[in-house]
Design a protein around this nucleic acid. Structure first.
Length: 183
DNA sequence: TGCACGATGAAC
DNA sequence: TTCATCGTGCAC
């Protein structure tokens, strides 16, 4: 299975988000390799996107989003769940793709439909924040499946406070897939 | 130094 | 609809 190259992430965030669907997220922890097929994502376009953390500018938390593409941006939300993002576009452009749901592939226990559950099932926490996704142990790969699936566009979840940005169709998922968090 | 509030999920 | 639970960002 081919690991995605840096150039895959160094492109327009919406393009990267759509093309991440069907790819496999792989994480090796405690000698166990866990992986899931990405079925739902959301694009966050900094710094003008009011729904993105990067809208507040460069801070200690968001500095990863401003960094080079192909790195993981993992943060704690509501004090109890983690969210996994992939940094996109060149260094200095604060944009990322939130992984919202995966379909279990290998060594996955529990549910994976939703950003918090996804991280829990694949043992992802904020120790992985800033991790290079081209390294061994934590990466995204192309399983080489034929691109035959339909993609659905919807507004993002949980960002109603973001005014006009809340209504933009920046959430993408595989049509009819049972592992999508909110069809 | 203090405090209001989430890119959530599960229970009621 | 409500609540658990805590790091972050910004006001004092």
């Amino acid at each position: 299975m081919q690991k995605l190259p840096r150039t895959f992430y160094d492109r327009d965030t919406i393009v990267v988000a759509r093309e991440l669907l069907g790819k496999h997220l792989v994480h090796v922890a405690d000698g166990v390799e866990r992986s899931g097929r990405i079925v739902e994502v959301e694009a966050y376009l900094g710094p003008h996107d009011l729904a993105a953390h990067s809208a507040r500018g460069l801070t200690r938390r968001t500095k990863i989003m401003f960094g080079p593409p192909g790195h993981a941006y993992v943060y704690l939300i509501y004090g109890m769940y983690h969210c996994m993002n992939v940094v996109t576009q060149p260094e200095g452009v604060a944009s990322a793709v939130l992984l919202r749901a995966v379909e279990p592939v290998q060594n996955v226990e529990g549910r994976t439909q939703g950003p918090g559950l996804l991280c829990q099932a694949l043992h992802i926490d904020r120790r992985l924040n800033g991790h290079d996704l081209l390294s061994d142990g934590f990466y995204i790969a192309d399983p080489g499946e034929p691109a035959g699936f339909a993609i659905v566009k919807r507004p993002r979840i949980g960002v109603d406070y973001a005014g006009p940005w809340a209504r933009k169709l920046l959430r993408f998922y595989l049509k009819g897939n049972p592992f999508v968090s909110k069809p």
